[in-house]
Amino acid sequence: MYELAYSRPASLADALALLAEDEGAQAISGGQTLMPVLRARLAMPSRLVDLLKLPELAGIRAVDGGIEIGAATTHADVAASGEVRAVLPALADLAGGIGDPAIRHRGTIGGSIANNDPAACYPSALLALGASITTSQRILAAEDFFTGMFSTALEPGEIVTAVRFPACQRARYIKFRNPASRFALVGAFAAQLPSGTRIAITGGGHGVFRWREAEAHLDSGGTIDAITEDMLDLAHFTGDLHGSAEYRHHIAAVIVRRALTALA
């Protein structure tokens, strides 16, 4: 690991100031992606600004029609939260399936979405459910937040402070795990919202996206069984040593049908 300095600011304002005054500074939350990246010398920040203990990023709160989760909430805390499970059980299940127990004890929702790994689980839930992301500067719709592989609408020095989800009992996340790494080879989050069916797919390779053709098919009376990969643009998928684009494309349709069947 390269040399770096570490700061644990006491407040969000202090964290923003630290990030603003040093162009090379990098925010760290649970660090379950960033630490391996640093150890592999794939990044060289001058300073880490630790957000994990910031009071402004803590807590899970019931809000009108849904739930708000502080950005520094760990996956384990989301999975174990009775409040989350009551209004959005699919999200508690998703959080309980990220990584492994030790990773879930440190990794956070804010860190996951700010990193926007193309195979991360959380982005699919945010996109399917139409969550909104509160940052140090503004409120963004999930649709506008995720802008491609490892890319978000966050400006330099901007910090995610919370994510707000609508309540939804009819939602399901299914992850097709890489049998070795257990990471999502492909993951699908399906939800029935008052506005219609929403399907988001992660793991394709370019970043999370909605399968609008399948949503429209169902909302116009089509059956789950009739949903096939022929309705899904192959260009959303890339291949690597774990699976070809065609394989991911096929698996995506399979797990979307499973997720939809589970909530039908």
């Binding site: 570490y6 644990r8 660090g31 379950q32 630490m35 880490l48 127990p101 030790a102 004890h105």
Partner: peptide, 13 residues
Amino acid sequence: GKAVKSCTMLAVQ
């Protein structure tokens, strides 16, 4: 009180 991977956090944390 919680299990973590001690290679995936800094000592200062």
